[in-house]
Design a protein around this nucleic acid. Structure first.
Lengths: 156, 156
DNA sequence: AGCAATCAGGACTAAATTGGTCCTGTATTC
DNA sequence: GAATACAGGACCAATTTAGTCCTGATTGCT
């Protein structure tokens, strides 16, 4: 299966935790505590998110991190890109060494681009808000039709 | 970046090699030779492709492998699925253990499904034929404009 | 028959990635 | 100036992945 790094998974948990209170600063300790993700890992996450422009940081005593935009303006693609680099389905994309041993490989590189574009746009259309809002079970009284769609899969 | 296993990459090279002559049987040695992929690896690939129904095998002296369908009827999604398992962007999909430590993670699992579906369908629309056809250089006498298109990126 | 070729199906080793931790430095508030 | 937090790395350990090899089973040819 195509693996999404676990870090990205955590990032979404942490970011959505922050999304609860936009504009508030959250310390690493605070976020770790409320998300269940170990603190050093949260720190690592944020160190990637901030340069990428997804969060803003405030140093010093009353410092911390805050989302730089509302959750519905942050796409999953951005989060993945911030952590795992450019979204692409191949091993040799970053133009590192031109020789990939298996020469016949390269003639068909062009085909991957088509695939990559499709995936990229798919990922750009899903926002952080989409990830938290729709399937939260706030109360037992669910929407009428949602009963048929979701419960098929056991939680995750 | 989202990683596609190198095996899958090889698989496409090897399969497209087979696609040149549909209906012919190709031995592992033969395929290895013409694709540049090491023989044991080719063997491993085929052992995944055949049960998945992408290729047929013939044992014995005059045996070998053959594509079970024409290249334009084989989607990239099938190849990936055969090698890497179901296409999904998350760590805990296969319903293994219900506890993924970080509990807050699961409420948002539903969101991934949306993403996964998008990716899956993107991958289903690209066929093996798409991967080989457009940018093959059959003879040194290449098409006029191909000179400009390809060399831009250093091979791959 | 018997022999050679070829796939089937694992076990196994080695290498590359990834996840996670820690340490030192810098900014900011009180 | 002391305490709090982020910044930015280096670094180690664990998991995954790639790749190799070995022992069958099957088929065609001599």
């Amino acid at each position: 299966m195509i693996r999404l790094s676990k870090l990205t998974d955590y990032a979404i948990v942490v970011l959505s935790e922050m999304a609860r209170q936009v504009g508030t600063v959250h310390t690493v300790a605070h976020l770790a505590d409320r998300s269940g993700v170990p603190a050093p890992t949260v720190a690592k996450l944020m160190k990637a998110m901030t340069p990428a422009g997804l969060t803003t940081s405030q140093r010093g005593a009353a410092g911390g991190y805050a989302l730089s935009r509302p959750a519905d303006a942050i796409s999953i693609a951005e989060i993945i890109t911030a952590l795992d680099g450019p979204i692409a389905l191949t091993a040799c994309v970053d133009g590192a060494d031109s020789q990939c041993g298996v020469e016949q490989l390269c003639p068909m590189r062009g085909g991957w681009e088509k695939v990559n574009r499709a995936i990229r746009s798919a990922l750009e259309e899903v926002t952080l808000a989409d990830m938290m809002a729709p399937v939260t079970f706030p109360a037992p009284a669910a929407a009428p039709n949602s009963t048929a769609a979701q419960p098929a899969r056991p939680a995750h």
